[in-house]
């Protein structure tokens, strides 16, 4: 059914939530992302798969504007993004939850959540928004005034996601959300992603937990050594053990 992408590429370029074309990125001299072209449609959940070092994290960082050396095109919500600083991209409705969570030490859970809305026009409603978020994240609700780094790894991950959701982004980039999180919380987290999807949030997911990721995704791209080597519907990839073994087995 998704084959139509091939024929409507020209239109898709303007319609997509995220459109990445011929993206190249470098860390110092190493060419980490090579000629990447992919897209994410509004409301879709798309997973980037591949081994460690395949360039997944770099791709997300480049989309968010955290890498200086890059070429190509990144358009988000019909706006050209490449060359714009990260904070401008945030204000266009793009959110990013980095791999290491980046919970700010020395701040409480509440203050970390406040940061999520601190630059937005909606910051007058910060308290109401924290209440609302706390409904979705009951684990955070009881711990609002606690030092954020005293939370468990999984709770910190929840906090990082909640913080990114404070400003109600159109699209969220999630880097390895289940890493170092205990299984019970991973279940909770993926239920949450499904709910976010149902509420219309577009998600670009990087995840080692391939089966989990594919089970909530619409489509996936497989990266290997900085290039896209395969793309397909999540359901098809889920059934394709060979591909999974070839590119994603650790």
């Amino acid at each position: 059914m998704l084959k139509f992408d091939v024929f409507t590429l020209g239109r898709a370029r303007t319609m997509s939530m995220l459109n990445v074309e011929k993206l190249n990125a470098w860390y110092d001299r190493s060419h980490v992302v090579q000629n990447l072209t992919f897209h994410v449609e509004p409301g879709e959940v798309v997973t980037l798969m591949g081994r460690n070092g395949a360039g997944k994290t770099t791709t997300l960082r480049t989309i968010m504007g955290l890498l200086e050396k890059c070429t190509g095109n990144v358009s988000f919500d019909a706006q050209q993004m490449l060359g714009k600083p990260a904070h401008i991209r945030f204000h266009s409705g793009l959110a990013y939850v980095p791999e290491d969570r980046r919970i700010v030490a020395g701040l409480t859970v509440r203050e970390n959540l406040q940061l999520g809305l601190i630059a937005s026009a909606a910051r007058a409603h910060t308290n109401a928004m924290i209440e609302e978020i706390a409904q979705t994240f009951p684990r955070l609700k009881e711990r609002l005034n606690q030092e954020a780094t005293s939370l468990s790894g999984g709770e910190q991950q929840m906090l990082a996601i909640a913080r990114a959701m404070m400003a109600k982004p159109k699209m969220i980039l999630l880097d390895e959300p289940s890493e170092g999180v205990m299984p019970v919380l991973v279940d909770e987290m993926f239920e949450l992603f499904s709910r976010m999807k149902n509420q219309g949030t577009t998600i670009l997911l990087v995840e080692q937990n391939v089966e989990r990721a594919l089970s909530i995704s619409d489509r996936a791209y497989i990266l290997d050594q900085g290039r896209i080597v395969h793309e397909g519907r999540a359901a098809d990839l889920l059934a394709d053990d060979e591909i999974q073994q070839k590119y994603c087995a650790v």
Binding site: L66, H87, L115, A119
Partner: peptide, 12 residues
């Protein structure tokens, strides 16, 4: 503590 995260959260 972490200037990258505040940039990602929309702060110039």
């Amino acid at each position: 503590r972490d200037n990258e995260i505040v940039r990602v959260l929309g702060i110039d």
